[in-house]
Amino acid sequence: MRTLLLKSLFARPATIGPPDADDAALDELGGALAARGRRLLGRSLTIREVDAGSCNGCELEIHALNNSVYDIERFGLRFAASPRHADVLLVTGPVTHNMKVALERTYAATPDPKWVVAVGDCGCGCGVFEGSYAVAGAVDKVIPVDLHIRGCPPRPIDLLRGLIALVDKATANDEALHSAASR
């Protein structure tokens, strides 16, 4: 194991450079966050992922955000195990009727201020599952959504760019509040 650790120590990092925030995401987030930054988040957001009916393709790519290549934690974003610890709900899938109540309860359990990101063509619309008796609808049919990240599934880099836009907007708002308070 020691050789492996040493090798890793001297190897070039696997992590890619930081991508820019997604412009479309910045636009969508525009005014939405202005009223809600009520506490200091210190440029960090905690995410709770909720699969509300996905095919698991979106989960695979969300998982990838944690690997050394995308390393999402360097942007102040981390995944939490409980909605009670989360600022952001990252929701995938067309919301199935069988998951609707669980999603509503998860949303209710997330403390304010909170943001919801709908992920994937299914989370943003219903994808190929449109019109099924078993599908309640896109995520924004069930809970309010602040940001849509499309793709089937979205690439990790697109997820990252959207989330960076969110952290920029959400916490810039905080900084404004903070400087206003200290003035």
Binding site: D51, G53, S54, G93, P94, T96, N98, M99, A102, V128, F129, G131, S132, Y133, A134, V135
Partner: peptide, 11 residues
């Protein structure tokens, strides 16, 4: 199980 039932057979 059954939470992510999307009605594939019907679709």
């Amino acid at each position: 199980l059954g939470y992510v039932h999307k009605g594939v057979d019907a679709l």
